[in-house]
Amino acid sequence: MSAPEPIRDNTFKRRLDAGIEQVNSVLLGKPRQVKLAFTCLIARGHLLLEDVPGVGKTTLAHALAATFDLDFQRIQFTSDLLPSDIIGVSVYERDGGTFRFHPGPIFTRLLLADEINRASPKTQSALLEAMAEGQATVDGVTHALPQPFFVVATQNPLDLAGTFPLPDSQLDRFMLRVSLDYPDAAAERALLSGADRRDILAQLQPTLDGAALDMLHTQSLATTVSPALLDYLQALLAATRRHPDIRVGLSPRAGLSLLAASRAWALASGRDYVLPEDIQALFVPAASHRLIPGKGAHREAIARAILAEVAVG
């Protein structure tokens, strides 16, 4: 990795803006979610898209893949999907008399895991392990995944029949959890009157490659985080541990992840320092799925309540 370039070099920022612009042209009326998705990729995190079907989860994932000029694989998670279906298998080759590893779809840079909650827990954990460690193990042999490795997973939270919701502890693997929501009226009109999304997708030009992503990541690490901001972040974390409706508050790792995402968000907003606004924008997508609420409590409501309660230093 090269030495961090001065942030004043706007080349990558301009390319980033162009990429964001491009995805926005496909996924109408969702600039925040698009920016969150970019943020997640810049911060080297995995993204969980959560919403009812038909609001554009897949479109977003495709647009990202097209914009990022990365190898792209898509896996449809179903109840009979096996771990080997995503990681790959070792096949005995009669010619050489040896086992040869046939890599599964996971060996890619950008992986879209569709309806992740439909797969069995065993399969889910195979994916999640790979996400956490950046490697996959088959028959005792460890195979490194290409770097960077991003997972964009989708799930439908409202439909639980025949599904295996990701356990709370596993949600931690995702840096951000983003809901897409229904488009607003204007965006929906544009959507209905415009061209077929699939056609637009086909026309997308890759604007960011792996190197650019690396550079953006490096730049995000170089953003300034002031003591005052750290105080605020710490107060937020402490508040989650104090809240009566939360069984388990945010871990320090969750705090680090929130900070990394906030840095990337600040970069995507064109700043080389992090503001409380950044943390507030990222708190619900980055923290709410990591809170383990008590019975009958609603995660996002709690997260928003905490934001409303903690004073900005």
Partner: peptide, 20 residues
């Protein structure tokens, strides 16, 4: 008094509150 948090309950029950 910095925060009040309430659990959600059904009418007729006592609502547990915390006050910071």
């Amino acid at each position: 008094l910095t925060a009040i948090r309430a659990q959600t309950v059904v009418a007729g029950e006592d609502v547990p509150l915390t006050i910071d």
